[in-house]
Lab assay of single mutants.
Amino acid sequence: MKVIFLKDVKGKGKKGEIKNVADGYARNFLFKQGLAIEATPANLKELE
């Protein structure tokens, strides 16, 4: 799953980066902790 990092995550990505991560990792950790959001077309447009 592609995500947009909202904060730096050690060993995974830095704020503003778009990366592929495991679905479970994204849903169970990154999204719940507010560290990333899903890289949907709408979210990508907001990032620009």
Rank of each mutant, 00 (worst) to 15 (best):
Met1Glu: 03
Met1Ser: 05
Met1Ala: 05
Met1Tyr: 08
Met1Ile: 15
Lys2Asn: 10
Lys2Val: 13
Lys2Trp: 15
Lys2Asp: 09
Val3Phe: 00
Val3Arg: 00
Val3Ile: 09
Val3Gln: 00
Val3Trp: 01
Val3His: 01
Ile4Ser: 01
Ile4Thr: 02
Ile4Val: 09
Ile4Met: 08
Ile4Pro: 00
Phe5Tyr: 06
Phe5Gln: 00
Phe5Ser: 00
Phe5Arg: 00
Phe5Thr: 00
Leu6Arg: 03
Leu6Val: 09
Leu6Lys: 03
Leu6Ser: 02
Leu6Glu: 00
Lys7Trp: 09
Lys7His: 12
Lys7Asp: 06
Lys7Phe: 13
Lys7Ala: 14
Lys7Val: 14
Lys7Gly: 05
Lys7Tyr: 11
Asp8Val: 03
Asp8Pro: 04
Asp8Ala: 07
Asp8Glu: 07
Asp8Trp: 07
Val9Lys: 02
Val9Gly: 01
Val9Leu: 06
Val9Tyr: 04
Lys10Gly: 08
Lys10Trp: 14
Lys10Pro: 15
Lys10Ser: 10
Lys10Leu: 13
Lys10Asp: 12
Lys10Arg: 14
Lys10Tyr: 13
Gly11Leu: 04
Gly11Pro: 04
Gly11Trp: 08
Lys12Ala: 15
Lys12Val: 15
Lys12Phe: 15
Lys12Asp: 07
Lys12Trp: 15
Lys12Met: 15
Lys12Gln: 15
Gly13Tyr: 13
Gly13Ile: 05
Gly13Thr: 02
Gly13His: 11
Lys14Met: 12
Lys14Phe: 12
Lys15Asn: 04
Lys15Leu: 09
Lys15Tyr: 06
Lys15Thr: 08
Lys15Ile: 09
Lys15Ala: 13
Gly16Ser: 04
Gly16Glu: 01
Gly16Ala: 03
Glu17Phe: 02
Glu17Trp: 04
Glu17Tyr: 03
Glu17Arg: 02
Ile18Ser: 03
Ile18Pro: 01
Ile18Asn: 01
Ile18Val: 13
Ile18Arg: 02
Lys19Val: 13
Lys19Tyr: 07
Asn20Tyr: 15
Asn20Arg: 14
Asn20Lys: 12
Asn20Gly: 07
Asn20Glu: 15
Val21Asn: 00
Val21Phe: 07
Val21Leu: 05
Val21Thr: 03
Val21Pro: 00
Ala22Gln: 11
Ala22Thr: 13
Ala22Phe: 10
Ala22Ile: 09
Ala22Pro: 14
Ala22Val: 09
Asp23Tyr: 15
Asp23Ser: 14
Asp23Met: 14
Gly24Ser: 15
Gly24Tyr: 14
Gly24Ile: 13
Gly24Gln: 12
Tyr25Val: 07
Tyr25Ala: 06
Tyr25Gln: 05
Tyr25Phe: 10
Tyr25Thr: 05
Tyr25Met: 06
Tyr25Glu: 08
Tyr25Asn: 05
Ala26His: 04
Ala26Met: 08
Ala26Leu: 12
Ala26Tyr: 13
Ala26Gln: 06
Arg27Met: 10
Arg27Gly: 02
Arg27Lys: 12
Arg27Glu: 07
Asn28Phe: 12
Asn28Glu: 13
Asn28Gly: 10
Asn28Ser: 10
Asn28Asp: 13
Phe29Ala: 06
Phe29Asn: 06
Phe29Leu: 08
Phe29Gly: 03
Leu30His: 00
Leu30Phe: 04
Leu30Gln: 00
Leu30Ile: 01
Leu30Glu: 00
Phe31Asn: 01
Phe31Thr: 04
Lys32Asn: 07
Lys32Gln: 10
Lys32Thr: 11
Lys32Pro: 15
Lys32Asp: 08
Gln33Ala: 11
Gln33Met: 15
Gln33Arg: 14
Gln33Asp: 07
Gly34Lys: 09
Gly34Pro: 00
Gly34Val: 03
Gly34Arg: 08
Gly34Leu: 07
Leu35Ile: 07
Leu35Lys: 04
Leu35Val: 05
Leu35Ser: 04
Leu35Tyr: 09
Ala36Lys: 00
Ala36Asn: 00
Ala36Trp: 01
Ala36Tyr: 01
Ala36Gln: 00
Ala36Pro: 01
Ile37Met: 10
Ile37Ala: 07
Glu38Arg: 09
Glu38Tyr: 06
Glu38Val: 07
Glu38Lys: 08
Ala39Asn: 02
Ala39Phe: 12
Ala39Leu: 08
Thr40Asp: 05
Thr40Lys: 05
Thr40Trp: 05
Thr40His: 06
Thr40Gly: 04
Pro41Trp: 12
Pro41Glu: 14
Pro41Arg: 09
Pro41Ala: 13
Pro41Asn: 09
Ala42Ser: 12
Ala42Phe: 09
Ala42Arg: 10
Asn43Phe: 09
Asn43Pro: 04
Asn43Val: 12
Asn43Tyr: 08
Leu44Phe: 08
Leu44Glu: 05
Leu44Val: 10
Leu44Ala: 05
Leu44Asp: 04
Leu44Ile: 14
Leu44Ser: 06
Lys45Leu: 13
Lys45Trp: 10
Lys45Glu: 11
Glu46Pro: 06
Glu46Met: 15
Glu46Ile: 14
Glu46Gly: 12
Leu47Thr: 07
Leu47Lys: 07
Glu48Phe: 14
Glu48Arg: 12
